[in-house]
Every structure is written in C-alpha cells, then in structure tokens.
Design a protein around this nucleic acid. Structure first.
Lengths: 127, 127
DNA sequence: CTGAATCCCTCAGGATACTG
DNA sequence: CAGTATCCTGAGGGATTCAG
C-alpha cells in the first residue's frame, strides 16, 4: 500500500477534508482498528498481535503495522536476541485514536439491532 | 457494553464485532459520510446531493443512497410531478451517525499536522 | 520469530449509455 | 430529473514462498 500516493480527489478543497477522508478510510479498513485495539492494553510482539487479531495474514499485519508506525501511532522496538523479538507499543497519538474510534464502535453496538430491523423491513417491502 | 474488549477473538466472529466492523467500514467508504453530511442541514434532491458532493458518479450516489435508506439512515420521498422529484432526508438515526462520525473528523483535523510530520520524519529516516 | 517478495483473485468504484 | 444496466480498471487483501 502506497500511502504517499493520494487518490485523485476531484473535490476542490481543503486540506482538512482530504485529511479527514484519509483518517476515516484508515479507520474503516479491515485491520487497523483491530490491531490498534490489540495494543490498547500494552506492548505486544508480532505474533502476539497476530494471535490476538484472528484471521489476519502475515502480510497484512506487516503492512498495517508499518503504516501505523509511519503515522506515529505505534512504536517499534527491536530486541536483538535469539530468536529476535520485536515489540510494538501504542503511542499517545495511537491511544487517542483508539479512544475516539471507540465512540463510533459504541454507537455501532448501540444501534446494531435497530439497523438490522430496518433492513428486514426494507427487504420485506421491496420483495 | 465495551466493544473494544473482545479478547478471545477466534474464527467465529461475534455478532457485535461483525456489526461494529461493518459500521466502521461503512463510515470509511468513499462516499457515505459525504452524502450524509450533504443532508445534514436539510432535505435535498438527487442532483442537489450530487452537486454538493463533488466527483461522485450517478451510480455510486444511487448505491450509497439505497444502502443508507435500507439501513434507515435516510428517508426517500417521491413527489410525482413533471419533472419527477425525489427528496432525501436524514432520519434521527442518520443524524446520530453524523454527530458520532463528526467526533472522528474533529480528531482527524486536530492531528492532521502531527501525522504529516510523523510521516516526513519516518520517510527521512528510512531513505 | 519477523518479516519481504510474489502470485492471484475479488470487488468497490468510475465511465458511459439507456429508460421512464 | 432520477434512476438502471454494462463494462472495465485498480486497489485491497489472501495464500504461499523465501530470507535474516
């Protein structure tokens, strides 16, 4: 994933809009939030995260962690030993993202049933 | 209910987790938020939304609106006239989503520069 | 153990053209 | 004006293999 390559935002505007869109799509991708949540309670090693986040492939975990590190959300610490160990820790910036995203998650959990019900009604009407 | 506390995430995704992931990816997709924001201040017609959201194709606007209607986020009202008019209005559920997502947007705007700076430093180090 | 590199496939999303 | 129907490309992401 090339994070430096910005999609051709046709919309005029404003650096803020682009930044916001980027953050939202980051939060909305398949793994970022789960990885960040896995680090919420403390440092973890690569395979520790992999175990905590079920179903993620090595490549996607590597990509996600690298992007998060680049953005300053996580810090990467290498312990040269045998076998080698790499610790990942959430930075304050990362923590603040988790907290903010958590509000959206809470909203989702709260309105889950309402949305599912709306869908059932809609599908029934349009059948 | 604490949705972030989902320690034993194994293959069988819990209903809550799936719902939360779905909402997050919805919010993170390319158009949903922009469309919802366009409706934030009142009802709009199809092409009114299209004009407000720059760069969206007809098809994607149709898809996005239909999904939002199905989820109960927007209400669709048809006025049989010539030419036909269709009004889209945000429901209370839709409004609550906007408010919640807005907090994330605010976080993004607040930390935009910090993140950009982190990237510059990272790229400089790894060059 | 922690990655990097490669292959492959699905699907979101853009560009039309057509209809009521 | 408000859609529907096709076609097509590219990015996201899975599986596998190689390397330090």
């Amino acid at each position: 994933m090339d994070v430096t390559a910005k999609p051709p935002t046709v919309k005029p505007p404003h650096a803020d809009c682009r930044a916001v869109s980027e953050i939202l799509s980051r939060v909305g991708d398949k793994w970022t939030i789960q990885v960040v949540v896995a680090l919420r309670l403390g440092s973890r090693r690569f395979n520790g995260i992999k175990r905590h986040v079920g179903g993620i492939s090595q490549q996607m975990l590597t990509r996600t962690l690298k992007t998060l590190e680049r953005d300053g959300m996580v810090e990467r610490t290498v312990h040269h030993s045998t076998p080698p160990q790499v610790e990942y820790t959430l930075t304050p910036l990362g923590h603040s993202l988790v907290e903010t995203a958590h509000q959206l998650a809470h909203w989702a959990a709260t309105h889950r049933l309402e949305i599912e019900d709306n869908r059932l009604q809609y599908d029934a009407r349009s059948s």
